[in-house]
Deep mutational scan, measured.
Amino acid sequence: MPVRRGHVAPQNTFLDTIIRKFEGQSRKFIIANARVENCAVIYCNDGFCELCGYSRAEVMQRPCTCDFLHGPRTQRRAAAQIAQALLGAEERKVEIAFYRKDGSCFLCLVDVVPVKNEDGAVIMFILNFEVVMEKDMVGSPAHDTNHRGPPTSWLAPGRAKTFRLKLPALLALTARESSVRSGGAGGAGAPGAVVVDVDLTPAAPSSESLALDEVTAMDNHVAGLGPAEERRALVGPGSPPRSAPGQLPSPRAHSLNPDASGSSCSLARTRSRESCASVRRASSADDIEAMRAGVLPPPPRHASTGAMHPLRSGLLNSTSDSDLVRYRTISKIPQITLNFVDLKGDPFLASPTSDREIIAPKIKERTHNVTEKVTQVLSLGADVLPEYKLQAPRIHRWTILHYSPFKAVWDWLILLLVIYTAVFTPYSAAFLLKETEEGPPATECGYACQPLAVVDLIVDIMFIVDILINFRTTYVNANEEVVSHPGRIAVHYFKGWFLIDMVAAIPFDLLI
């Protein structure tokens, strides 16, 4: 008679799926529990143990900040960024110097990925580790590398530091407007667009060049630039800015003055950032001319202004700041037409079709709590990747769950009947059967004279019903998954307890 339990259901295979997918890609990662103190490590794979030199037993239950890997060259700011990422709910990448158990130093890129439950609360953290440099290539500990984003994938490793954006290309926007319009339909740009040429040739750093990471940081200074100062900065030398009595002219307006920039070969870094931020506020060169004239017309309804409409929906549905990093990277690809469009465009503009998908598509409701890094690593669709929660398995109709209350009560009843059979069957065979043979035949009273025979008949009927119930009862397979398919249940029961239950259900007393 089957006594099969499996009270692990309803099970959740999400954690096993993450481990299996990460292991298949030869990654070095740990999984931490966000619900406990210090976000203790609950799993670390073999790749991480080989990377740091510690065994799994030495890593388990330690804080996922990996303070046991810190050393003299470990930056405090990087460690603080990892700790801050564990307090938030967004994906974050941090470069930090770690030390192995043998004392060797290596520069590592740590990717902190939160995993949320159905309520939107962070319950786990996945920390992925990628070695960037070994100890002989690690720089000085005073050099802070965590304020910069990861290198873009479309640049060669040897040319990542030679990417320079020439400031004269930004200063000569109005001069290039006529050349853009003359391109017409034969050019790649839309009317009114501004073409910015980027020099990728390796050259020595000069005062006129600005690194790509500095251009990325310009967006942080746009908020500090007032509207009046932006307007004066875009007017140009024809209309000098008016300053109040006793007030000095704005240095932001002076930063885009061609006369002032041409007199000296070098520009201050602050002026460069502010000038680029001011130019980015204009949607095209037409807006710059309109600002000089004193009238700013409404933005025209053409394809170039609607190019950012799908980007707005993608940004609203993005799951991490990696989408913004990807957008900034692609927006700086050289030799393309940049349409400086305000994100607050007309909502009635139709979304044009684009061959290049900048932001990841909208994630469906079932995966809105899973970050983009987890979705990318697992390579699963929205119909396959579940949320991290207890999910009731989908069972067929008329199927009994093996952990249901009805099955528990039924098993206790069958257990009592088995005990009765084990006690009274030998007793009936030894004593009652002998008395029946010696006594007179009682054929007239039937079952009324033999109450134990009636009980034995009921017990046999219950055993037959138990066999039928076992054909529709779920079970737990070797992978700790609840199986509810009727065919698989029948095959599993035939290979197991079916023969024993059938022999126990045969009414031998009635056959004798």
Rank of each mutant, 00 (worst) to 15 (best):
Glu230Ile: 09
Arg280Leu: 10
Val132Phe: 15
Leu210Glu: 06
Thr17Leu: 13
Val370Met: 14
Ala156Gly: 15
Pro297Met: 05
Val132Asp: 15
Lys135Cys: 09
Asp213Leu: 05
Asn317Trp: 09
Asp321Ala: 14
Leu296Glu: 14
Asp259Val: 11
Cys64Asn: 01
Pro258Cys: 10
Arg20Tyr: 04
Cys44Gln: 01
Ser318Glu: 13
Ser304Asn: 07
Pro10Glu: 13
Pro241Met: 12
Ile363Glu: 12
Val115Asn: 01
Val3Arg: 07
His70Ala: 06
Pro2Asn: 06
Leu109Trp: 15
Thr13Trp: 14
Ala204His: 01
Val112Asn: 01
Pro386Ile: 01
Arg5Asp: 09
Ser331Met: 05
Ser250Glu: 05
Lys166Ser: 15
Thr74Trp: 01
Lys364Tyr: 03
Thr319Met: 07
Phe68Thr: 01
Ile336Asp: 09
Ser255Val: 15
Lys93Leu: 14
Arg148Asn: 14
Gly294Ala: 10
Ala260Ser: 07
Pro202Gly: 06
Leu378Gly: 01
Leu248Met: 07
Ser318Lys: 09
Gly158Leu: 14
Ala79Gln: 10
Val196Thr: 01
Ala303Trp: 14
Cys39Met: 08
Pro168Cys: 04
Ile288Asn: 14
Cys49Phe: 01
His309Val: 09
Gly187Leu: 06
Arg292Ala: 14
Glu118Ala: 11
Cys108Val: 04
Leu296Pro: 11
Ala121Glu: 09
Ser179Asp: 11
Thr162Lys: 12
Arg366Pro: 07
Trp154Asn: 11
Asp355Tyr: 07
Cys108His: 01
Glu230Cys: 09
Val115Cys: 08
Leu15Cys: 09
Ile333Pro: 15
Pro168Gln: 10
Lys135Ile: 06
Glu357Leu: 05
Thr65Ser: 07
Lys166Ala: 06
Gln11Asp: 13
Ala188Phe: 05
Val112Tyr: 01
Glu357Val: 09
Ser264Cys: 11
Ser55Cys: 09
Pro157Phe: 15
Val384Ser: 04
Gly103His: 04
Ala172Cys: 05
Asn317Met: 12
Lys28Ser: 09
Pro361Tyr: 01
Phe163Tyr: 07
Arg92Ile: 12
Glu289His: 04
Ile359Leu: 12
Val370Pro: 07
Ala40Arg: 11
Leu315His: 14
Leu385Lys: 09
Arg27Gln: 09
Gly183Asn: 09
Arg20Trp: 06
His70Glu: 01
Ala34Met: 06
